[in-house]
Computed example of a mutant assay.
Amino acid sequence: MVKAIQIGLGHWGFSWTKEVIPNVPTIEMVGYVDSNPEALARAQSELGIAEDKCFLSLDAAMQAVEPVLAICTLRTEAHYPVVKQCLELGLNVIVEKPFASTIAQAKELVALAKARGRVLMVSQNYRFQPAPIAAAELIASQKFGAVNLVSIDFRRHAPSQGYRYWDMPDPLLADMSIHHFDLMRMVLGDEPKRVSCRTWNPAGSPFGFHPIGVATLEFEKGTIVSYRGSWMSSGPVTPWAGEWTMDCAEGEIIWTSRDHFMGKAGPDRLALRARDQDAVPMPLGAVALADRMGTLNAVAKVIASGSVPPHFSSGADNLHSLALVQATILSASRGGDWVEIAEIMQ
């Protein structure tokens, strides 16, 4: 078991404390850190966490306990300084996405983790689901040959679904699409080359910034991805990972993932359609620890064994997913002009 502390017990952090961490048997919690005493008091009263495991600062926690891993579940703007402090203290880190606000900050954290010989993982939880894992394996094995075109649709109506971050900049690209961008890289086993993106905010929208966007993404091997996302859609709700159609030389791979919505939940789905044939559903293997539990378990296993599994979202790997977010935002600000990923990475 890996001894860990959690830093950040706010709204999303508390969800980690309650729903994720207790279900990962490879983790032994030795401390919880939050600068807000009310957050610590809530963890104690609602979850029965011992008072002597709760600290108002990372320094206080490090004086009292000896963790190996920091689980960083803070607001985005706090990721960089806190992760940097953790790495400087010799801790391994798993952090929520995006793991930094800029590419420069992200590169600095990756370099620091490498210099200190520590694991830095970004919790890209959508990777730990049956459908994208199966799709990645099918693409890697050339089930239907080379991939020509990938079409992805994400549809939600935020005003009627409990959305709360109306003033967040880039609520589609930065808050939601990073999941889809990261899955593109994982499933295709390829890196993006350039992107073109347009975003907009419809009349009557409660959003302060653009909740709808379309993007064309070109990957290094030549695959083109057509991506359409909306937080203001009145159409049929898609699963959180979106609806994917992967058009290959000899057939299609069609899949969806994370199909849960307002108390309802359904399994991941994947179907194969050979050229000129009907689609045939493909059975999917179970994932022992899915979603955020999967990311936390993965980082614990890497720390314990030193062996890095397939699809592990290290900080170095995640630089490319963060670059996709930055590139689409920049393209949208330029009216849809093509933006080279190399420009962003520099």
Rank of each mutant, 00 (worst) to 15 (best):
L120P: 00
N92R: 06
T73N: 02
I71D: 01
V30E: 05
L40V: 11
R116Q: 15
V24G: 06
Q129F: 13
Q142A: 15
G145P: 01
T73H: 01
A113V: 02
S45W: 07
L87P: 08
D34H: 01
P81Q: 07
A41E: 14
A136M: 07
A146F: 01
V93N: 02
I71M: 09
S123A: 15
I103A: 04
C86D: 03
D59V: 06
F99N: 07
E66A: 13
D52Y: 06
C54S: 13
K114T: 11
L112E: 05
D52F: 05
I27M: 07
A50Q: 14
L74D: 00
A70Q: 03
P37E: 08
H79G: 04
A50L: 13
A134C: 10
V65N: 06
A134L: 04
Q44S: 15
A135I: 08
K53M: 15
L74A: 13
V33D: 03
S101P: 00
R42F: 08
P130G: 09
M29A: 02
L89R: 14
Q44D: 12
E88L: 13
L112D: 04
P132M: 04
V95F: 00
P130V: 06
A78M: 10
G145I: 10
K97Q: 07
A134T: 07
V30D: 04
C54K: 02
E46P: 13
N92P: 09
D52N: 15
E28S: 14
G90W: 05
D52R: 08
S35D: 11
T26Q: 14
P98W: 05
S45D: 15
A134R: 10
V83R: 01
V82K: 01
L74V: 15
P67G: 07
V110T: 09
V83I: 14
L138C: 11
D59Y: 03
S57M: 10
F144V: 06
L112I: 07
V95M: 00
A64V: 03
D34S: 10
Q44W: 00
E38D: 15
F99L: 11
I103V: 13
G90T: 11
A115E: 15
A70W: 03
S141A: 15
T73G: 00
A131L: 09
F128A: 14
G31I: 04
V83W: 00
T102I: 11
P130A: 13
A104K: 15
E28K: 11
L40K: 02
I27C: 07
T102Q: 12
